[in-house]
């Protein structure tokens, strides 16, 4: 019984961590290339809406996913235009993108479906459903291993597994490939990249577009994986928690997984229990909700290991003169 609850919480943590993880890795590509992105939230929201809407219209989760990715990447291109081509302020651009997504999804959603900004309830075909991995039945009777396999390892939709696979993939791309080397270099010293004969602009656009791709998947997961349709403001700050996780993880892929699982766990606890009692002290649920942000501030303050962002982050590349 105890084990079952534990496993349910663990499974729930994993599902809640998935969108955080995808968005966190998205931010990782962008920020490692020197483009700060506080617009993760907006990109996720736009993707969640488009995925939900298109999946509802076409009845296909996969077409919805593609539409969500497209919406997110369009916003990425705006961010790229502002911060790479026009050398504008990356933070302001991110703020604008968040508002744009917030306003447009509600406006267009209401106009399109007339359901108060929601998209129609998705049928099975329009959603990414939980997969039952092979052997679940066979293993079920075995104590401990059976339930773990059933609740924690099996029983998630494909995007959850995709998000988990994205962690080692990101690590590999970043530290084992030419592209990753150049990406990390452009976030630290774009001048070195430029004088090495590599286009800073192209590299940064590539990073920003990958960020859009992953945010798109994260958004689609929200509306077609976790829920059965889009609801207004359904990201509810997840993009910012992902940003917090990115800082928490000091811009590294494996710690990003850890941070997202931790934040997902906090959310799972918050959903399951309205407050936790430890001895005579009651920890309110709001504290659990605020904890990711509090932890991030503590990390940022450098009291527990300093988080140093990529050196050239946030600044457009201008040849000195």
């Amino acid at each position: 019984m105890e084990l079952e609850i534990l496993l349910q919480i663990a499974g729930s943590s994993l599902r809640l961590a998935t969108p955080l993880l995808l968005a966190c890795l998205a931010g990782l590509y962008s920020e490692r290339a020197g483009i700060f992105d506080i617009g993760l939230e907006g990109k996720m929201l736009a993707a969640a809406f488009m995925a939900g809407a298109v999946a509802a219209v076409t009845g296909s989760a996969w077409v919805g996913l593609l539409a969500g990715i497209a919406a997110s990447m369009v916003l990425s291109l705006i961010h790229g235009l502002a911060s790479i081509t026009l050398k504008g302020n990356q933070l302001i651009s991110g703020v604008a993108i968040n508002f744009l997504a917030s306003g447009l999804t509600a406006l267009v959603g209401q106009n399109w479906f007339h359901q108060g900004g929601q998209t129609p309830q998705l049928t099975a075909g329009g959603r990414f459903l939980a997969l039952e991995l092979p052997l679940t039945e066979t293993l079920a009777p075995i104590p401990v291993i059976g339930p773990i396999y059933q609740h924690l390892i099996s029983g998630h939709n494909i995007l959850v597994y995709l998000a988990l696979a994205a962690v080692p993939a990101t690590w590999w791309v970043l530290f084992r490939t030419r592209f990753g080397l150049r990406l990390r270099a452009v976030g630290e010293n774009p001048g070195a990249v430029d004088t090495a004969g590599i286009s800073v602009v192209r590299l940064r656009y590539a990073a920003v577009l990958i960020c859009g791709l992953l945010c798109g998947i994260a958004g689609a997961y929200l509306s077609t994986g976790m829920a059965a349709g889009f609801v207004r403001e359904m990201t509810a700050g997840k993009g910012f928690i992902a940003l917090a996780a990115l800082i928490f993880a000091k811009w590294r892929p494996w710690p990003a997984l850890g941070a997202c699982l931790l934040f997902g766990f906090l959310e799972a606890i918050g959903i399951r229990y309205q407050g936790i009692t430890i001895g005579s002290i009651v920890i309110p649920v709001q504290f659990m909700q605020a904890l990711p942000y509090i932890l991030t501030v503590v990390i940022l303050a450098g009291f527990v290991g300093k988080a140093v962002p990529p050196k050239a982050g946030g600044r457009p590349y201008v040849k000195e003169r």
Binding site: S83, G88, N89, S93, A96
Partner: peptide, 12 residues
């Protein structure tokens, strides 16, 4: 959003 975008980020 458009005002922030055009007067802030896309000023150039």
């Amino acid at each position: 959003a458009l005002v922030i975008l055009f007067t802030g980020a896309l000023e150039n």
